[in-house]
Design a protein around this nucleic acid. Structure first.
Length: 421
RNA sequence: CGGGGCGUGGCGCAGUUUGGCUAGCGCGCCUGCUUUGGGAGCAGGAAGUCCCCGGUUCGAAUCCGGGCGCCCCGACCA
């Protein structure tokens, strides 16, 4: 597929829209990644969607490596299933509800314990089919009390939710650990700086639960982190700790954005929904379950909160919408366009996610947009450097650029990419 | 839901206090020419239910009443 900037739908904005206050919201609007339809309801434009997909793919490959299997569950949930667990009322106003033509009630799925457990009770009959981890990427609906911060807290958002089924607590502990590790890998691979904290299971239920917090000043959650080890705890959790219980180090107060939450559910849902299998002794036994969520769309916002400057977004390579942007200073100059076009083809051939800014705009406009959108590697092809058979390479995160021989550029870019992944 | 703020071409705003003539500015958009290394210059042009409904008035973006929408602070969450 040709990635020519001129043909792409990336409506960038020069000014800050007044509707947006926090940085990620402002920058996503300005970079042409998202547009608002209503409060807490957003469209993802091609650039935003591309980033979302990159995050999704990182999660998918890690989940698959952990042996989890992807499926897709329905969005419309019949009322009776949620009544079986008592959550039709318990979840209350947060669940959006709809009627069909026969006036039957459905909820728009805010989470899928009921659905997956119903599937398990119908299909998993024997301990021989366990353990099992199933997951999906799906749009979730939650009628939040107060949607805010753009994509950060939405009424409609993309979530990865996984559910594990085991024959006993030991199996659950194993799967939980596996997911715990997998989540660490996922957030690390996304290039995020994060902390793990113990959490309150809340409405989802269960006993053990951990949250993954991306560190950012605008985070909604206040955390206490140990300055010596990596221990962290929610500030509002009920405790009287003045120093780290692990190493007695001092606490520092920081803020975090919750991007992932894992739970040991135990038999809460399998009991309520009578989801049983036959164990080795031929005895009906409830599944021992865990559930594991990641706010995919929220990761995108959190990544921006964590990495930006006055000029715009600074993407970490693995989730950048493009890895490389080639910026010809003038499209009227045949030599510049020839070099740019050839470079583009070569990088493309190497499987590099490259875009050519072939727009008939002033150089300044292109520079500003590249910075705003936050492409990690920029290759500028200009009259001055081209005479010496050079191009200029600049990393978004660095202040200064450097020159590189045109012929060496593909190699150099490959090397840079290797170091930045 | 309680508290605060906002609503005027696509975006950012002025005008509203003290009602008045054709609703204005910057950016963006279209056409042409000139420019071309950090958001260009000149000329011409398109684009508006001034959030909606009702009221007051000779006359309403502006005053009054009601409603809706959006943002921020609190409870909620991935």
């Amino acid at each position: 597929m040709q990635m020519l900037f001129s043909g792409m739908f990336i409506p960038t904005l020069k000014e800050n829209p007044q509707e947006a206050e926090i940085i990620s919201h402002r920058l996503m609007l300005r970079a042409g990644m998202i547009r608002k339809l209503a409060a807490g309801i957003y469209s993802y434009l091609p650039l935003g969607f591309k980033v979302l997909k990159k995050v999704e793919n990182i999660i998918r490959s890690q989940m698959n490596s952990a042996g989890a299997q992807e499926l897709l569950l329905p969005t419309l949930h019949p009322r009776h299933l949620w009544e079986e667990t008592g959550r039709w009322n318990e979840y209350g106003k947060e669940m959006l509800k709809v009627l069909d033509r026969h006036k039957r009630e459905f909820g728009l799925g805010p989470t899928h314990e009921e659905i997956i457990t119903d599937l398990a009770r119908r299909e998993i009959k024997s301990y021989r089919q366990l353990p099992l981890i199933l997951y999906q990427f799906q749009t979730k609906f939650r009628d939040e009390i107060r949607p805010r911060f753009g994509i950060m807290r939405c009424r409609e958002f993309l979530m990865k939710d996984a559910y594990s089924f085991d024959k006993d607590a030991e199996g659950l502990a194993k799967n939980y650990d596996k997911m715990y590790e997998t989540y660490n890998n996922i957030f690390t691979q996304c290039g995020l700086e994060f902390k793990l904290v113990e959490a309150d299971p809340g409405l989802i239920g269960g006993s053990v639960s951990h949250e993954y917090m991306v560190l950012a000043d605008t985070g909604e959650e206040e955390l206490l982190t140990c300055q010596k080890c990596d221990y962290a705890i929610k500030a509002k959790a009920e405790h009287n700790l003045t120093s780290c219980p692990k190493c007695k180090g001092k606490f520092a107060s920081i803020r975090g954005i919750e991007v992932g939450h894992i739970f040991q559910l135990g038999t809460k849902y399998s009991d309520l929904l009578k989801a049983n299998f036959l164990d080795e002794n031929g005895k009906q036994t409830p599944f021992v379950m865990g559930c594991y969520g990641i706010g995919v769309s929220r990761i995108v916002a959190a990544a921006i909160e964590q990495s930006h400057d006055d000029d715009g977004i600074i993407w970490q390579m693995p989730i950048a919408p493009f890895e490389v942007l080639i910026l010809p200073i003038s499209i009227a100059d045949d030599k510049i366009m020839k070099v740019s076009g050839e470079l583009y083809k070569k990088l493309k051939k190497e499987g590099i996610d490259v875009v050519l800014d072939d727009r008939d705009e002033q150089a300044g406009v292109k520079f500003k947009d590249t910075d705003l959108i936050g492409i990690p590697i920029r290759i500028t092809v200009g009259t001055k450097t081209i005479k010496e058979n050079n191009v200029e390479i600049k990393l978004r995160k660095d202040k200064n650029s450097f020159k590189e021989k045109i012929s060496e550029t593909p190699c150099k870019v490959k090397e840079l990419l290797k170091n930045m992944k």
